[in-house]
Design a protein around this nucleic acid. Structure first.
Lengths: 338, 338
DNA sequence: CCGCTATGCTGAACCGGTTCTGCACCGAGA
DNA sequence: TCTCGGTGCAGAACCGGTTCAGCATAGCGG
């Protein structure tokens, strides 16, 4: 069964291609009668516009792009990306725009992917994640004049609009809560130090510590893997005095911490409190269940995609602040026993 | 900076569009000298072919599709899909073919997505995962004459070629190993019962049990979530006699089982052995580390994408058997204490 | 020197849409 | 009755590639 084209419909209806196009796109130029007749025939033929032909003629690709630059090994276990993708998809499929995905192994490949997509007119714009300080992608987008929305940058960067949430405020809230419980030695096992949101949280942590008079607060940087999370946890729990509370920058490392604590016979939460950043079902699967900072990651994706669609259609869009991440207390946080 | 077209290059080189096309595609029809000149100009202009124009003229979309039909909540935590996507991507990006992704909430939406993609000529073919018995997608592909490759079906289904691994043999190996350790009460917390691979493993389990004379072997079906895994585990560990070994159909449920065992003060592996199907970094993050059945999921994706590319280009491709999943003993399996 | 083939290129058609121009026809107003 | 404006449609151009037919020109053998 050959896929019907607009010419088939025109022939069947006894009109010209142009008339069919007007009818199918709901534009003036054809009478109501003709329009109805054409629509009926199109429905009967199960006609859908060829994305290639439409892209060629109106210059729109009808797709947005997302490049994920993480090795497969790490990628799989991080729930962040899948959540994000679901969110993006929910917006895009409602607008029948496609999502093109690419997984790369380093940033130069990532840059190359954007260049290629743009030159090939495969996408109308892209969503950037994992923004770093002095991120070369921002310059690239400006050079190519490629519509782009940044997720989780400070407030968007350069001329690029961003979708962000107030990580600093959430960090402060967590520290204040731990301090109120009586914790004075607080550590944080952070992610990659050159990511913007890592830096933002680190700054918020030290500012809150200073304000609260906590002098024994430190941040350890990792690469987000469970291995490094476990290693950092062992090191922290071996210090004297050991921290009485540890904040982890992702769920995976926090779960690893539970295993390490178990292995070192350190009780959670009696001897050490654990907070995970990015709540995920994983946090409720371990024992004790992890207190966590939750964000609506699906919402992030949905909002970012919506901004990008506006941007692509020529609107000027500003930054969009999503809800502040919220702390969810569970069994892994308590007052220190000392 | 306007994106260069083939006409720009033709003008710059002083030749016709046709000549440029021949030169850029490495076809005969132009002299070596002219070819070199054209290639140099194309490189200078950073020319890449418009995917829309190429798709329109040669009828190829230059993209493959993958629909993932799982709610976001479950999707995030399952490492399977991200691994699979990485694998698919590794093949596709090497062939500069795009991957179009869609996340749907039920199978009717999934079916609709295929229809739309195909009618819109957005993809040249699709990869099907999570095959069910009497899966309507198989018929749809045949009706639309849409190239498709099945991952993890029995041996491909109907006329569709498949990429599969011998889950039955792996299941048998695990059961034999547990039996050799002395286990006689073995349970399995399975995934969705109407998935093909669930059924295959279930059958292999009971056959192996029969052959080994194990009469106390049972399978409990779940929806793959940690919650249901935990619930099933509680139920199993409350039975008398309780199983001395439990096999889980995914990593998430196995991790949940560790927490439940901890909560119920059942020692792993002394009182119950735990085996996870689908090894993932998660399995090494919990204490004790989980013995697991590992598969090369990235390889799955890569192979499936390669078959699909062949299929799209007109080759007849048969089924492809990937390596048999292999058992990785870690700290969660041991001889029963009784 | 002539015809023949190969080579190297041009020009045009085509893929399936969108959009612009222009023409025929209609009813209304002078 | 003649014009005028609007409606409803046809026809063609265009988007950026690919591909085919055709036409010089060069090189070759006889």
């Amino acid at each position: 069964m050959r896929r019907a084209t607009i010419a088939d419909i025109a022939r069947a209806a006894g009109v010209s291609k142009g008339a069919v196009s007007y009818a199918l796109n709901g534009r003036p130029g054809v009478s109501e009668n003709t329009r109805r007749r054409i629509l009926a025939i199109a429905a009967e033929y199960d006609w859908h516009p060829s994305s290639a032909a439409r892209a060629l003629s109106d210059g729109r690709a009808g797709a947005l792009g997302l490049v994920v630059d993480r090795p497969a090994r790490i990628l799989g276990i991080e729930s962040f990306f899948m959540q994000l993708i679901s969110g993006i998809e929910s917006t895009l499929s409602a607008n029948s725009v496609g999502l093109l995905l690419q997984v790369t192994v380093d940033q130069s490949n990532e840059m190359e992917a954007y260049r290629r997509w743009w030159a090939q007119r495969r996408v109308d714009g892209v969503i950037l994640v994992d923004l770093r300080r002095d991120d070369p992608r921002v310059g690239l987008m400006e050079e190519l004049r490629m519509p782009a929305v940044v997720i989780g940058g400070p407030h968007g960067l350069g001329t690029l609009p961003g979708v962000w949430s107030d990580d600093a405020r959430a960090t402060t809230a967590v520290v204040e809560y731990l301090a109120a419980l009586g914790h004075r030695q607080i550590a944080r096992v952070a992610g990659l130090p050159d990511l913007w949101h890592t830096a933002l949280r680190t700054r918020a942590l030290s500012e809150a510590a200073a304000r609260l008079g906590l002098t024994d607060v430190l941040t350890v940087n990792t690469d987000y893997t469970g291995d490094e999370g476990a290693r950092a946890t062992r090191a922290l729990l071996s210090r004297r005095p050991a921290p009485t509370a540890i904040i982890y920058d992702n769920d995976v490392m926090a779960v690893a911490a539970v295993a390490v604590a178990h292995e070192m016979r350190v009780a959670i939460p009696a001897e050490v409190s654990v907070v995970a950043w990015d709540d995920s079902p994983l946090c409720q699967l371990v024992h004790p269940q992890l207190s966590a900072v939750g964000r609506d990651i699906v919402g992030y994706g949905a909002h970012a995609a919506a901004r990008l669609l506006e941007l692509v259609s020529g609107a000027t869009v500003g930054n969009f602040e999503d809800a502040v991440p919220h702390f969810i207390p569970r069994g892994s946080t308590a007052a220190p026993s000392g």
